[in-house]
Simulated scan of single mutants.
Amino acid sequence: MSVVYVHVGLPKTGTTHVQDRLWRNRDHALARAGLLYPGNRIDDHFHAAAHLQPERYLDWADPAHAGVWPSMVAQMRAWRGSSLVSHELFANAGPEHIRRLVADLSFADEVHAVLTVRDLARQVPSVWQENVKNQRQATLDEFVESISDDHAGPDQEPFWEFQDYRRITADWSEVVGPERVHIVTVPAPGTASDGDGLWERFVRALGMDPADLPAEVPSSNKSLSATQTELLRRLNGRLQPEDIEWRRYERLVKGVLIGDYLFATRDGRPEGLTGPQAAWAARKSEEMVAELVRRGHPVAGTVQDLRVTATAGDESAAVTDGDVVEAALDVIALWAKTGPVPDRSPALTTRAADLVRRVRRRLMR
């Protein structure tokens, strides 16, 4: 029987790690589990998701990659077992996009949606920090205020567009049926036992044995400490779109400053919710979990992982100016010790040419 699973995220729920591991295990998955993870490059799933919503992702829907999704569909059509497509840009696909995608998969006997979901106490600060890594300047307090119910509006931070699993499950249920919308919960801190982490839950939701996909990958998409995030947030005040083009910011700030230096000097916990913010998250979570339970979707893990206690707030001391200066000095020191040393001496070919000229001058005397 031909079955296609569409992993729609949610963003910041371990999706990058899951996708890296799926790509690393694609040969094992095909040979041992009968699972096709299509595509010729790891970023093909990104291009497929972007082209499903070209009006929304105009900058990313590059015509050069327009053939990626048809190619992936052809691969899945030719495979009579299970297939999996995975990218978090599918999370904000509306009913019309979902129907179009399912129509493209009309050859399949069944289409299922898979959502990886994490509790709001961890999800909200994680999404905020990711925003800071992408040139944003809002503080966590400002971010939480912008996504609270009392501040909904046309200019609202688009957090719920990707994170409201009630809407996302409802939209997919309308097209594929609620029994084919699977919830995979990210284990609550300290609750996952051996063999019950996110990866194992995800693979079991596909009806497969994690032992058949044994290749591991390093942890990716790490978190910055509260101090480092504040350093970057302040730096963003000088690196807005009018100051620096995105490609340069992405390569130098995200790739080098964050990837090579801030992660290497990380010291301390990420910033978390305060007590009042955690109380809000607890109330909101109860509403969302209750709706999930009412719909009866199959769950890998437990919905208890999605509940937030009102005492989950992070009461750590506020980051000071001195803390930010120390974090900056740590980065500069690491750069001085390990960064590439520019070669300011003349190129070898230039020195050789100068030598030849000097010899010729002597011969001409």
Rank of each mutant, 00 (worst) to 15 (best):
H182V: 02
W172M: 04
D171V: 02
A50F: 11
A66R: 10
E245D: 13
L30V: 10
P38L: 06
A170F: 03
L363M: 12
P346N: 06
S2F: 03
W335P: 00
L84V: 10
E96D: 14
A278R: 05
A121T: 04
R361A: 13
F143W: 09
A29K: 02
R247A: 13
L273D: 05
E157I: 04
Y57G: 02
L306K: 08
W335E: 07
R266M: 12
D354M: 11
N236R: 09
R204W: 05
S83F: 00
R360M: 11
T309V: 12
R360C: 04
V303W: 05
F46V: 01
T169L: 14
A290S: 14
W199Y: 08
A347K: 13
A33L: 09
E287W: 13
R99F: 00
D343I: 10
V111K: 01
V299P: 05
E291D: 10
E179A: 15
A353S: 14
L206W: 02
E142G: 15
A29T: 08
A333G: 11
E96N: 03
L273Q: 10
L22S: 04
R351L: 15
R283V: 14
A317Y: 09
D321Q: 11
R166E: 11
E161Y: 09
T139H: 05
V308A: 11
V176Y: 01
L235Q: 11
R360K: 13
A192F: 04
G197R: 03
G177R: 06
Y261N: 06
I147F: 02
R32E: 13
G9M: 07
L363A: 11
V181E: 01
G272F: 13
T191H: 06
H51S: 06
F159N: 02
T274S: 15
H47Q: 12
V356D: 12
E287H: 14
V18L: 15
A113R: 00
Y249E: 10
W335Y: 14
T229Q: 04
D20M: 12
A78C: 03
T139F: 04
G272A: 10
L198S: 03
K284T: 15
L224K: 02
Q19E: 13
L306D: 05
P276N: 12
R238V: 13
V85D: 01
T185R: 02
A33C: 12
M76N: 01
T338H: 10
L35P: 06
Q123L: 15
P340I: 05
E315H: 14
S146H: 08
R180V: 05
P218C: 10
P11D: 08
T265P: 06
A49E: 01
Y5R: 08
P54H: 08
L206N: 02
P187T: 02
A103H: 03
A103F: 00
